[in-house]
Design a protein around this nucleic acid. Structure first.
Lengths: 263, 263
DNA sequence: CAAATAGTGTCTCTAAGACAATATCAC
DNA sequence: GTGATATTGTCTTAGAGACACTATTTG
């Protein structure tokens, strides 16, 4: 209950007297996508991919950037990031993880603009299209390598374009988006490793090979399939259905087991 | 390098054409503090405490709230939260963890005001004072209990005042701060359990009993001291110094071992 | 000495890594 | 049959929980 004096205070309160920043929400949008089969005999590779847009407008016009845009009155920051992602690329995520705020002065040449970043996850293959502020939208393959100092870096490739942040300025990313992506990839690897967040990347039914391939694409770790199977077996349950036409022994399809309710 | 056309664009860009929110940073400030000794024979209890201020101004004038305030031009959100915490309470944290953005429409009666929340950690006993926008600043004991549905809730007590969010409106917290605190306590428990972030709460030298008491105050878990000692022994190293005057066998002081550099 | 806390050792159980062995399919 | 992947099982090791036992201090 607001007191009378508080009502009066609010009546006299004028937000426009104070300087305010513009606020944006940016989305590091990830998926694990099957590649091509090399022959009837080999399974397709599963690769981590990141969704970028090419900016239609200044600043950084023509550069690749994270989908995102300005927070509007009456919406939450989560609604904002989902709206902007849909407007610019047509994508609808299956999960949303908060990453944090990027507010370093000077990060946007237009002025005082701060951004809240999220990781969004898209299940399986999704067609994307450029829309709104985006001239184009494309999935980039994400790969990791170590730089001279042994630090883990990432590289983005889509056939035409190769983006390697911090190495020259050509084909680089807009704003501080390289840093945001780097933080996002670390965060999501941690969530997959220890938080059990892997099923957001998978369809309802999946084989153990798909589960493991996605896990490895996201964490960069490799494990023996027998040990991986044992480690994950408590989290999934068999469906009784099997793959076929794979050029080798069929694999059973599993689904995620409902989480236990902890009293 | 900005292109000529981008320079021109920026010259014509006027941020004030768009609606913007006010942005605040709020701090969930935690410490683990020794209590009183019951007698020469007993060790003091270690308790988790949370720093709140009593609001000097509308809205929620006179209510307890998280320290925090408006982001100002030329500062990052991290600088903002540290500045506001110092201005309002005099506290200087030893660690800062990002928690996330709170932006639900209607969360602030003054209008469109969104908040980025952080957990800040204070080492040991620190005197606080109300300052600036704060009429008072006090440490509250944090305790946990289960509600009717078995959900984990928290209670805040400082001798005079007991705050139990969600139970009646009296003595409740300002804005959505009860929710922010709840999220913060979950987050920090997770960090202490799995992220190794416990030493931020401790002085340079500490006994295993202090280490364990802090760990338990933050996670709510209890363990046998022998097992806890074994689990943590790789992370600490003995100093050769011992406590005295404790009414029982002296305990060796340990310090945190330097983290290994992983190649 | 009694009470309280510090610290060591041991038994068991479980999870994880290494690796061997068998199963089944498309061609 | 061959080559690829699926699936099961076994051996070993590391860590966690339970618990018994010894050590040292102050009043």
């Amino acid at each position: 209950m607001l007191k009378e004096t508080e009502k009066e205070f609010l009546k006299g309160y004028d937000q426009s007297k104070y300087e305010r920043p513009s606020v944006t929400a940016d989305s590091v949008t990830l998926t694990v996508r099957r590649g091509e089969r090399r022959s009837f005999r080999y399974d397709p590779e599963n690769k981590l991919r990141l969704l970028l847009i090419r900016r239609k407008n200044h600043p950084y016009k023509g550069c690749w950037a994270l989908p995102g845009g300005f927070l509007e009155p009456g919406e939450s920051i989560e609604e904002c990031v989902l709206r902007e992602l849909y407007e610019e690329t047509g994508a609808k995520p299956s999960a949303l993880f908060p990453l944090g705020m990027y507010s370093k002065p000077g990060r946007d040449p237009r002025g005082w603009i701060i951004s809240e970043a999220f990781v969004t996850v898209i299940r399986g293959d999704t067609e994307v299209r450029g829309g709104d502020d985006a001239e184009d939208a494309r999935w980039f393959d994400v790969s990791f390598f170590k730089d001279g100092n042994g630090r883990r870096k990432f590289r983005l490739e889509d056939g035409e374009t190769v983006i390697t942040p911090d190495e020259g300025e050509s084909d680089s990313l807009a704003f501080d988006h390289a840093r945001i992506i780097s933080d996002a990839l670390s965060m999501i690897a941690e969530r997959v490793r220890h938080g059990g967040h892997i099923y957001e990347f998978l369809p309802d039914k999946f084989t153990f090979a798909e589960l493991q391939a996605s896990y490895e694409a996201l964490t960069g770790e490799t494990e023996q399939s027998s040990n991986f199977r044992r480690k994950m077996s408590a989290q999934v349950e068999p469906t009784g259905q099997f793959t076929s036409g794979s050029g080798h022994r069929p694999a059973e399809l599993y689904r995620r087991k409902d989480k236990e309710t902890d009293i």
